[in-house]
């Protein structure tokens, strides 16, 4: 498993699915026999963990889409947590 840096490319771990749930009015992460309800920030980051863009691009895209600057620290912190939870992988 490779480590987190600005050039690593995060994607959802095998068996995980990210989707919007209409009845719950929230994004969720689904995995074998489990579900996590995500807050807006977590959902915005996970939506971009698509195995295509690296962390640096992901942060730039978020800052552009949400018209906020200085997200790097928060995003990195979330990615560390997401990896520890087993939600994402780098590869």
């Amino acid at each position: 498993m490779s480590e987190l840096n600005l050039t690593s490319v995060p994607k959802l771990a095998a068996g995980y699915r990210f989707q919007w749930e209409e009845v719950q009015q929230t994004h969720v992460l689904l995995y074998p026999e489990g579900m996590v309800q995500l807050n807006d920030t977590a959902a915005a980051v996970l939506a971009l963990c698509d195995g295509q863009r690296n962390v640096q691009t992901l942060i730039a895209d978020l800052e552009r889409d949400y018209e906020i600057e200085g997200l790097q620290e928060d995003v990195l912190q979330f990615l560390v947590q997401a990896q520890a939870e087993g939600w994402i992988r780098y590869g």
Binding site: E21, V23, Q24, V28, L30, E33, G34, M35
Partner: peptide
Amino acid sequence: KLGAAQLG
């Protein structure tokens, strides 16, 4: 439709 997301 009721909201079930996990299905076993």
